[in-house]
Design a protein around this nucleic acid. Structure first.
Lengths: 330, 330
DNA sequence: CTGTTAGCGCGTTCAA
DNA sequence: TTGAACGCGCTAACAG
């Protein structure tokens, strides 16, 4: 059971000083003859620098933390996929942490990132998170809020949630539906909150009563939704605030054995792969996920490199309404 | 811009030695009065131990690497979700890396894990990966192959791919379909390879000619599939080897403007959320994802802790056929 | 261009 | 029980 080789081992074999090895490895010019010997020794020993030691010495871990509620939905899995690829291109590795919208877990994760000395963090925060929480947990560490807004003081990139929801609602109104309900779980999650606000704005602009159907979890949501749909003043159209909400709306339809013709019109958030293929093809708001991630990482890395302007950036990207048939089009 | 507090700072404030602080933090008994002072100092300074330094000293990074082809599909996003949660419960953080089935990227990731001195790794490997590759890249580091099999010498947990595919095929045969095609991208990916083998076995057992429809990417797959379906001896049923394959089969149906009645029967792999809700409800092979992850992590951590028996474990878990209507049932 | 020295922050000796 | 000294592996600073 041999010890892993260290710079010293390589240096000894190549008959040079340890710092020469270090220099060679980092691309600092060394005399060609020496370079060859070092290279040979590195290969011979299968040497690989210890990132922890390097990190400890230079103060940069080349690691970013990604804190999300979960990864198992379209939006987040696409996000994390893109984050990982982009981060890698910049020589960073990703520590992935999920909090399930539980504040305590999120705080624990922030602590984890602090202990690992992550260079920065991308975070979709749990409801109730304040700028103080973040600042206290990660002092002097660049953080960009993703798909959530913490405060003016913290960089963020997110969907223009209100506008998107208003647009969707207005589209439904344009089809003549007057009784539109907005359905979501966890209405206190930032993006859902904004979306339901946008929905309510559109309704009020027409002097219509907003009707928010929400619940803390999906089982309860289906129950409540079922009651409303079977009730006397059942909504003629639905706005689902996430792909999973859409899913449970469909499940409710099934549970109620509602035929296609009896089903309310529907617009959902997030354009999952099967959206065009279900019956009827689903009209959705599509988020520009890759763009959002790219912006977020640009901001993050410019902060890490110190090349950023001091100004905080709060980027709001527009959603796109993808019209298919569930909204009543065609 | 204050420096982050270190053990020394805490020690000074609490008027004790640095090692006492270290002991206190790790739960080694210290005199109550001293403990109180240290605790106070820790809180006052907001001290958080540096994981890199600790790791460097004790030789354990409390980090595991997870190398997957991608995360944006049902199976992998569920997997990574569960891995993260389970790893966290065991005090480990997860470094996430994706290789898109490109060998070069995978090798780079292995190198990354070595440099970060990950304590272990879960890996779904790219086609062509050998035990030697892994061993050379990660000597003395526990590795468990997930959803892929490298060799008898490396622990692995995966679906009983062949059996599952055979079961699905036989189910289709039982419905009277004689001409069944198997469709997938990247037929050289381990699990796809096994599945198509299981499919072929079932066909041959009935003296039927296997018909593998495959392509390196989805665009080409749709093209090839379209040709076959419009051809003279179009398959009466299809076996899709992944959820994304299923998706593209449906897209092909759309492109061909195939009515429901003209569409071949279909069984897919992976039970995505909308599977029961599409038309017709999709019959699938469901993988026991959480179970698989749990087994994989149990093996991994028992190796890391050294509590494992020396015997290599190769776990093959059965898939479950979820009958809905796309296969011809009902 | 190169080698030597020192120290990043911690945990672990070893005496006291 | 506690504290001082040392070293994990690396790179920055300095002298040659």
């Amino acid at each position: 059971m041999k010890r892993r080789p260290t710079v010293t081992d390589v240096a000894a074999l190549a008959d040079v000083g340890a710092s020469t090895v270090s220099r060679f490895l980092r691309g600092v010019p060394v005399k060609p003859a020496v370079a060859a010997r070092v290279k040979h020794a590195v290969d011979a020993l299968g040497y690989e620098p210890d990132e922890r030691a390097r990190s400890l010495r230079v103060g940069r871990s080349k690691t970013i933390g990604v804190i999300l509620p979960k990864v198992s939905n379209v939006f987040f899995s696409q996000s994390i996929q893109t984050i990982e690829e982009e981060a890698r291109q910049r020589g960073c590795t990703v520590i992935l942490l999920t909090h399930q919208d539980v504040m305590a877990q999120q705080m624990e994760h922030l602590s984890t990132l602090r202990r690992y000395r992550a260079d920065g963090a991308i975070i979709t925060c749990a409801p109730g998170t304040t700028a103080k929480d973040i600042r206290a947990a990660l002092p002097h560490v660049p953080v960009v809020a993703f798909d959530s807004f913490i405060s003016e003081e913290i960089d963020s990139v997110l969907l223009r949630n209100r506008d998107a929801a208003r647009m969707a609602t207005e589209h439904l109104l344009g089809h003549g539906y007057g009784s539109i309900a907005c359905v979501t779980v966890k209405p206190d999650v930032y993006s859902f909150c904004e979306r339901s606000a946008g929905y309510a704005e559109a309704m009020k602009a027409r002097n219509l009563q907003p009707n928010l159907i929400s619940a803390p979890d999906y089982d309860q949501l289906r129950y409540v939704l079922g009651m409303k749909i079977r009730g006397k003043d059942a909504p003629g159209a639905l706005l689902a605030l996430s792909d999973v909400a859409t899913l449970h709306i469909f499940k409710t339809f099934e549970e109620l054995a509602l035929k296609s013709s009896q089903r309310p019109a529907l617009v959902g958030f997030d354009d999952f792969a099967f959206a065009p293929l279900i019956d009827p093809p689903l009209t959705v708001i599509r988020q520009p996920v890759e763009m959002m991630v790219r912006y977020a990482l640009n901001i993050l890395f410019s902060r890490i490199d110190g090349t950023a302007s001091k100004e905080i950036q709060n980027l709001f990207l527009p959603g796109e309404l993808i019209c298919r048939r569930s909204c009543g089009c065609l």
